[in-house]
Design a protein around this nucleic acid. Structure first.
Length: 442
RNA sequence: GCCGCGGUAGUAUAGCCUGGCCUAGUAUGCGGGCCUGUCAAGCCCGUGACCCGGGUUCAAAUCCCGGCCGCGGCGCCA
């Protein structure tokens, strides 16, 4: 009798509430094989878990012969009787009567039993094998859940999901850091941010928009926290009183991402990631960058007034805030105008500072946002002040001549949230197929 | 882009500083053998490597130069 995969049951189901003594069909990957003379133990793995199969010579000699020859990670199907077994993991096992080998695996090029035994570079070369390990799969289950939670959050708060173009004719925020591509016979670029387009969404009348999509940065960073292609969770909202309204949304979005991930995967996260954040943070403290300078200076970090925070300063600030406020997250606000892009709104009373913020998660920037300048004349002069040519922004500037509400928004780096949440040492782990200055394959 | 460190079996490493004792060690994997209760099974046997190119030297895994690749720091950023 042939095995029909339509009858297949998931392992988690068999371990929990299937009937002992019944026959079942299972299928998946061979996790481990222990040949024990006339007995062969197979640990079978599917997306729901692992369970032991026993192949006994005296039950089925055909299956036993096949089982002896199996290689790890081969894909098999089996039919057999579910029995209780004190010795087996999960307390149950299947005594195999029929065995099918769908695909025999060659010797593995990396050790997938323990990801820490292979360097990340090699693991990424063999990503499809690397992801067979539950720990590594979990990273992407968390990512998927966080993205889902973000979408749900924005939808339920009246934001419209938009899909902006990733092929653009001009660099978004002017100048470098963009990938050049050839668009038929013209030069073009990959979008480094949906910034200008999401503002368009607001001004077009959607009022509140969001997008979860790729962003491209041609920056040759060699760090553990940069990718040349990453997923940006962006939102933009109109009719705000101040950038505090934007921070509130960013805060709730990020908290709901963390809350959902913990709600769904807390136990598994705890099992595999000892440095993961295990509790949902409450409210997120806000400190101005000028307060941050003071805190850092009194902690012995030398820092220049009016400058951006270095990565060391951000790390240190993360520690200070955790100690002083008990929060792994912190908003740093009112960044200096000179380190912010042209569309940022400056403080009305102190034009050297802006209505903008960064959100730090365990000392790493995971989001940037603020209120945008919506007054046409001011925008033009700010563009010029940044050394940009208004001619290159004609379509963008036009939006502010036909009715643009006060608005603001933020961009959240999805991989960075995942990385900081799980306590990963390298952002490449949080990207299915990471791109960095060297890596373009797979 | 700048700076630092590195590249040895399928994987992870020892050896490199102080060249010859390296016929390159160890773990794991892989191949074979024994085993009816293992659980990253155990035991026995076997297998397999000095990134590429050039140079120094009687002699190079080891020293020098270049390239490629990897890891990290910085700047910058999400």
């Amino acid at each position: 009798m042939a095995i029909r995969l339509a009858e297949r049951r998931y392992i988690a189901e068999l371990l929990q509430n299937a009937k002992i003594g019944e026959k079942y069909v299972v299928a998946g990957w061979v996790d481990t094989i222990r040949v024990h003379g006339k007995l062969v133990f197979i640990v079978l793995r599917d997306r729901t878990g692992k369970m032991q199969l026993v192949v006994k010579k005296n039950v089925s000699e055909t299956a036993w012969r096949e089982a002896k020859k199996l290689s790890p990670e081969s894909v098999i199907g089996a039919r057999g009787t579910l029995v209780e077994s004190k010795a087996a993991l999960g307390g149950r096992e299947i005594v195999v009567e029929e065995l099918v080998v769908y695909s025999r695996a060659e010797p593995l090029p990396i050790d997938i039993k323990d990801p820490s035994k292979t360097t990340l570079a090699k693991r990424l070369d063999w990503r499809f094998l690397d992801l067979r390990h539950p720990r590594n799969q979990l990273i992407f289950l968390v990512e998927a859940e966080m993205a889902r939670a973000a979408r749900e959050f924005f939808h339920s708060n009246g934001f419209i999901e938009i899909y902006t173009s990733k092929i653009v004719g001009a660099a978004t925020e002017g100048g470098a850091e963009v990938f050049s591509i050839v668009y038929f016979d013209r030069p073009a670029f990959l979008a480094q941010s949906p910034q200008l387009y999401k503002q368009m969404g607001v001004i077009a009348g959607f009022e509140k928009v969001f997008e979860v999509g790729p962003a491209f940065r041609a920056e040759p960073h060699h760090t553990t926290r940069h990718l040349t292609e990453y997923t940006s969770v962006d939102f933009e909202m109109g009719f705000i009183d101040s950038y505090e309204d934007v921070m509130k949304v960013a805060e709730n979005a990020v908290l709901s991402m963390i809350r959902s991930a913990l709600g769904k995967y807390k136990d598994r996260v705890q099992e595999y990631f000892s440095d993961a954040l295990m509790e949902v943070p409450r409210t997120v403290p806000r400190i101005t960058i000028r307060e941050a300078y003071k805190l850092l200076r009194s902690a012995g970090v030398s820092i220049e007034e009016g400058e951006d925070l270095s990565s060391e300063a951000e790390r240190k600030l993360g520690e200070i805030v955790l100690k002083e406020y008990g929060s792994p997250l912190v908003f740093v606000t009112e960044y200096p105008w000179k380190v912010r892009p042209f569309y940022t709104m400056r403080k009305s009373d102190e034009p050297d500072w802006t209505y903008s913020f960064d959100l730090l998660f365990r000392g790493l920037e995971i989001a940037t946002g603020g209120q945008r300048e919506h007054r046409y004349e001011v925008l033009v002069s700010q563009l010029q002040e940044k050394g940009l040519n208004p001619k290159n922004f004609e379509w963008y500037l036009a939006m502010f001549r036909y009715g643009a509400p006060p608005h603001g928004g933020a961009g959240i780096g999805l991989e960075r949230v995942v990385m900081q949440f799980l306590g990963l040492g390298n952002i490449r782990e949080a990207r299915l197929l990471p791109r960095d200055p060297e890596r373009l394959v797979p």
